[in-house]
Write a protein that binds this DNA or RNA. Structure first.
Lengths: 125, 125
DNA sequence: TAAGATTTTGCGAATGATTTGCATAAGGAG
DNA sequence: CTCCTTATGCAAATCATTCGCAAAATCTTA
C-alpha cells in the first residue's frame, strides 16, 4: 500500500473542495493528466482506507468527499448541487446507537433533500 | 400519470419492506413477472412524485425506500446490509436550515456508517 | 360500448459510470 | 543495481439503469 503522488493529489483535491464533488470534477482539478481509471482506483483506495467517503442520492450522481469536512448536506433536487452546513447533533446519538444496536459506528452523514434558493427563485419567474 | 397496478405493487413492496432494498430485491418480491425496466420506470415515477426515495453509500448499491418509514440507517460496510433505527432530532434542525440557507427542505436522511454486530463477531473468530 | 387518444409495458439495444486485464513503469528493500 | 511488489495507462468488459419502438392497456367522450 503506497501513498503515491496520484493518490495524494486526489486526496488534496477533495480536501480543498468546497463541497462534495464527482470523479470527473476531481479529474478536471488535477493538472497532471490522469486516466480516469487511475482516479477511480485512487478513490477506491482512499475510501477503503477511510480517508474519504462517497454517496449518491436519487439521481445516480456519486459524490466524493472528506467526511471530516462535509457530512452535512443540503442536496437540491433540481440542479443536483450540494450545499454544506455545519450544525450537527448526531454525535450525541452515536454513543446511544453504538450500545443499543451493538453497531460500531465509524461516521455519519446527515442529508437534507429539497430545493435550493437559486432554483426556487427560477421557478418563481 | 396513472397509478397502475405495477406501480402500486412496487410501492407496496417498499411499504412492507423491513429495510431499504434494491431494484432486484423488489423484482424478486413481486409475484407477477415484471420486466426490470418496468420496475425502474415505476421507481422513477414514485421517486419523482415523492412517494419513495433512493440513496447509495460507498459501493454502488442503490437502495430504495419509503422515506416516512426509513430515513435513519445503520449501514454495514462489510455486508452492505442496512439496519434501521428510529430516534431522530433532525426535525428541529429542519426549520433552522430552512431559514438560514433559504433552502426548502423536503425530507432528510441520517446515515451512520460502520460495522454491524454480525460482521463484528465474524471478524473476531 | 366502440373509437380515438394517451400512457404504460416488454423487449432488445444503448448508455454511462465504474471496473478489469494486461503489459509497462515506478517505487521500495536489500 | 537487481529483484519483487504495487501502481499506472490503455483498451475492453461489466453492470445497473435508461431508451426506442411497437404492442397492449387504460381513459375519454360520444
Amino acid at each position: 500500500m503506497r501513498f503515491t503522488e496520484n493518490r495524494k493529489n486526489v486526496l488534496n483535491v477533495l480536501k480543498n473542495a468546497k463541497r462534495p464533488i464527482t470523479a470527473e470534477e476531481i479529474d478536471a482539478e488535477i493538472t497532471k493528466e490522469l486516466d480516469l481509471s487511475t482516479i477511480y482506483r485512487a478513490l477506491n483506495f482512499l475510501e477503503e482506507n477511510q480517508f474519504i467517503s462517497s454517496a449518491s442520492f436519487g439521481k445516480n450522481i456519486r459524490f466524493f468527499f472528506c467526511e471530516d469536512k462535509f457530512n452535512h448536506f443540503l442536496y437540491c433536487e433540481k440542479c443536483s448541487k450540494i450545499e454544506v452546513f455545519n450544525d450537527c447533533f448526531a454525535q450525541k446519538l452515536k454513543k446511544k446507537l453504538n450500545k443499543q444496536y451493538n453497531f460500531q459506528i465509524e461516521s455519519h452523514i446527515l442529508y437534507f433533500r429539497g430545493i435550493c434558493n437559486a432554483c426556487k427563485q427560477e421557478e418563481e419567474l
